[in-house]
Amino acid sequence: MIDKAILELVDIKKRFGDNEVLKGINLKVKQGEVVSIIGGSGSGKSTMLRCMNFLEEYDEGEVCVQGRMIGYGADAKGNYIKAPYKCIQNDLKDVCMVFQQFNLWPHMTVLENVTTPLKLVKKTSKIEAEKKALEVLKKVGMEHKADSFPSQLSGGQQQRVAIARGLATDPKIMLFDEPTSALDPELVGEVLRVMQSLASEGMTMVIVTHEMNFAAQVSDNIVFLASGLIEEQGHPDLLFKNPKSEKLKTFLASWH
């Protein structure tokens, strides 16, 4: 059971018009595992991550979360039929995403940003939702800003609130799409520290990142993507110290 993948991609292909962005991705993520996806811009990292929670509709292959295929059903002939919106959301209720641009709702306070999904989706009572919200905000060190609006916070603070908003829904898998790329350099650390504590608590995480040192520290598996294919993957100790593929060597050289 331990070895069973909680999240699995099988031969995922994705095209934007004539441009094939993902050319057959296979990946298994086990419960409690931290996987970082690295690669140059345009290599398909973000698209791959977005396919995992169906923000991007893949064209071929299968994304499975906890054994259920996401986004499609099949008809009698085996053709894909897009699943209804509600069905997709239900299959993805344990997956939450943290975005590069935070995507907090600016018309709500920090507290409301966290409580609204609980109240609307999980039908939690107001009191329970606020209790839960303050708990997760405390965890990311933002409970003192509960009554502020997102526009009053720094980027790093906004991203920590966004992580809290996701955490409040008790996800089993968290996806991070370049969570520190939009931040000023001095604000990167506070977000990485929150992510690191999540990793140490055993959260299953998939992270698209340019923070190589961070990836090396927290990841169980590093996936190097190049032009729509997984070029190389492995434990950070092996992959960073002893890269095999030429593309990865070139990529890593550009970071030193």
């Binding site: 959301q89 641009q101 995507n103 609307l120």
Partner: peptide, 23 residues
């Protein structure tokens, strides 16, 4: 409205009607 705000709501399980009325 930035598309990301809608995606975040979608990702957190909002129905389309809730996205309209709350976001």
């Amino acid at each position: 409205l930035p598309k990301g705000q809608i995606e975040a709501a979608q990702n957190l399980g909002f129905s389309k009607r809730q996205i309209l009325t709350h976001i």
